[in-house]
Design a protein around this nucleic acid. Structure first.
Length: 618
DNA sequence: CGGACAAGCTGA
DNA sequence: CAGCTTGTCCGG
């Protein structure tokens, strides 16, 4: 393959680049005698160590001047050692009382200036350090050169049928922030093609596999695409569509005409480690700064999205066809002893095609009772309930001590499994269908061989690892509906969305089977009627009443220096301090502006302090 | 972050 | 009081 022409550092168009001879004499009002006609170029650098949250000035050797621009990654001498850093400003007037050192070298290309500024905003918004965010925004490996790209006209979409979706898209492109409610199995490709016709497009979604697939289809449609994180240099070259997962919110593009966030409701769009930035919110701010529309897409728009802008809804018929058929198995009057296998489930199991059974409990048993005296099996040390591991021994859920399978009350070794886990249910299923049944949990490694079994039982991890099924059955959906998390309902519906994608559109005939004692629950009803607004309505009410996000801004504070920091925070009328519980405080304010400003105003003591903005658990 | 330097602790 | 640990400061 012929080598691609590489562009030299200074014929690149997006940022103002310093000409080689930019080192100009600085006019200094405090000096009456003019300095030498040519002084050295001075740059301001942010070190890549998050703990050093300051900027430092350095001179640039003439030999490196042509590689210097805002964002360039450099090595700098600092306090007797060398650290990395980003140039944040070029040609600055340094404090004349300082003697500057010279940068030690240029390591490569970095984010454009707009992303540098966005990172600084995110550091405020999620109470973190700018350098932490900038690391995410920087190339995974050193980028020495960026490909030259001839700017070509944006491709005209190959007459995408002027269907409903493109109509909704046109509406969305005229709004700063909006959400398109697209059912789980519908195809977003036409939407992306019409967005790409508007100019540089940024597409962010939760799944790397999906983003790869969508980017390849886009390429086949004649659009130049850079897929992150691999093609960072290609994205940096500009005039291209960029696809990627949550970190792509920091894609190194100077200009963007449209930003699209797919599966906006998905929790994996939020970073788990602090700062806990959310790709949706970064994307919205980014689009706002660029004057571009931000289009959120989701089969079940989050309450955050509903708060941020209008939700554009397809016709009832279109939405219905994008959800699978749902069988709700009402277990309220299940005969005792029927266990997890209802008649309807057994019938579905005996049909054709792959059956994926979901039970969010690992191991053999999560709750055991003695077959002799009826006592619940508990830990000898801490009284918590014990579970039975894959190996058959009893393990305490809270102190992890292990003991053999014996009743501490009467000495019997016969135990009744009151809440079976995946390992045990796999054996029962195998006995029932008389064919091999595979189990699949987060610990399973599918890369070796994969599971060829027709019937699969797994935790929700199975929904990420299998991509096709004729039936998906939730054996105990109440566990999801009743989980003690404030987002439990949304998380439960998100599981049904995942399941729907294994089944495909309604016309394919796949069945989504839900065993529950709460058949009237909004989550179940939303899936049954292909109408997520049923959950949305009740969710908004509840969140308003309980003063939860998005009606309030919240942050969780923990870590060894949390008590000291909370003390320094004191009592302020603008924010409410709750806790501590388990060494964790909750802060609440009317909005992010208030909460973030207060947090930023309190200096951080030394030691570990974790501030989790917009926590998933409160 | 991590090097420098100071103050504090230990043992003969 | 040397020799070592622990803590605080600060960087261009």
């Amino acid at each position: 393959m012929p080598a691609r022409p590489e562009q030299s550092a200074f014929d690149f168009g997006d940022d103002p680049v310093v000409p080689v001879n930019a080192a100009r004499p600085r006019s200094s009002s405090t000096e009456s005698i003019p300095r030498a006609a040519v002084t050295e170029l001075v740059v301001r650098v942010r070190p890549d160590q998050p703990a050093i949250d300051r900027l430092f000035d350095y001179t640039v050797p003439a030999s490196l001047c042509d590689q210097i621009r805002v964002g360039t990654m450099v090595r700098i001498p600092l306090h007797g050692r060398r650290v990395g850093g980003w140039i944040v400003e070029v040609d600055v007037d340094p404090d004349p009382s300082l003697t500057l050192q010279s940068i030690a070298g240029v390591s490569g290309w970095g984010p454009p200036s707009s992303v540098l500024e966005l990172a600084q905003w995110a550091a405020w918004r999620w109470a973190g350090r700018t350098a932490t965010v900038l690391r995410t925004a920087s190339p995974p490996r050193v980028v020495r050169a960026v490909p030259r790209r001839d700017v070509r006209p944006a491709p005209v979409p190959v007459t995408v049928a002027s269907d409903e979706l493109t109509g909704l898209a046109r509406e969305a492109f005229n709004l700063p922030v909006s959400t398109i409610r697209l059912p789980p199995t519908s195809d977003v490709h036409p939407l992306l093609v019409s967005a790409a016709a508007r100019g540089p497009l940024l597409v962010i979604g939760p799944s790397a596999a999906t983003m790869r697939r969508l980017s390849m289809r886009m390429r086949r449609a004649g659009v130049e695409v850079a897929l992150l994180p691999d093609d960072w240099a290609g994205a940096r070259a500009g005039s291209v569509c960029v696809f990627g997962t949550r970190a792509a919110a920091w894609a190194p593009i100077a200009e963007v005409a449209t930003v699209v966030v797919l599966d906006e409701h998905d929790e994996s769009l939020q970073q788990e480690q602090a700062p806990t930035w959310h790709a949706r919110d970064v994307a919205i701010e980014r689009a706002r700064r660029a004057g571009a529309p931000c289009v959120l897409v989701s089969p079940m728009p989050s309450s955050e999205a509903r708060q941020l802008g209008p939700v554009l809804v397809p016709s009832r018929a279109a939405e219905r066809s994008g959800w699978p058929m749902v069988d709700v198995v009402d277990r309220r009057d299940a005969p005792p002893g029927e266990g997890l296998f209802s008649e309807k489930f057994v019938a579905a199991l005996r049909g054709e095609g792959r059956v994926v059974c979901i039970l969010n409990r690992k191991g053999r048993s999560r709750l055991l009772g003695c077959a002799g005296c009826g006592a619940l099996a508990t830990c000898e040390r801490c009284q918590a309930s014990v579970t039975q591991s894959d190996e058959g021994v009893l393990v305490c859920g809270s102190c992890a001590s292990v003991r053999p399978l014996i009743c501490t009350n009467c000495g019997t070794t016969k135990m009744r499994n009151l809440r079976a886990g995946v390992t045990r249910v796999r054996e029962e299923l195998e006995a029932l269908v008389r064919e091999p049944v595979s189990d699949l949990t987060g610990d399973s490694d599918l890369s070796l061989g994969g599971t060829g079994a027709r019937v699969i039982i797994g935790t929700e991890a199975a929904l990420h690892q299998i991509n096709e099924a004729a039936v998906v059955a939730f054996l105990d959906f109440d566990q999801e509906l009743l989980a003690a998390r404030y987002r439990a309902s949304e998380e439960a519906l998100a599981l049904l969305v995942r399941a729907a994608r294994l089944l495909g559109a309604r016309e394919r005939g796949g069945r989504l089977l839900i065993q529950t004692r709460l058949p009237d629950h909004e989550v179940v009803q939303s899936a049954l009627h292909a109408d997520p607004s049923r959950l949305a309505a009740s969710d908004d009410e509840r969140r308003k009443m309980l003063r939860l996000p998005p009606y309030r801004a919240m942050a969780a504070v923990s870590g060894v220096s949390a008590p000291a920091w909370i003390a320094a925070l004191g009592t302020q009328s603008a924010i409410e301090v709750l806790g501590p519980s388990d060494g964790r405080w909750l802060l609440r304010a009317d909005d992010h502006q208030t909460l973030c400003d207060v947090i930023a105003s309190v200096p951080r003591p030394a030691g570990r302090l974790r501030i989790e903005m917009d926590p998933l658990r409160v």
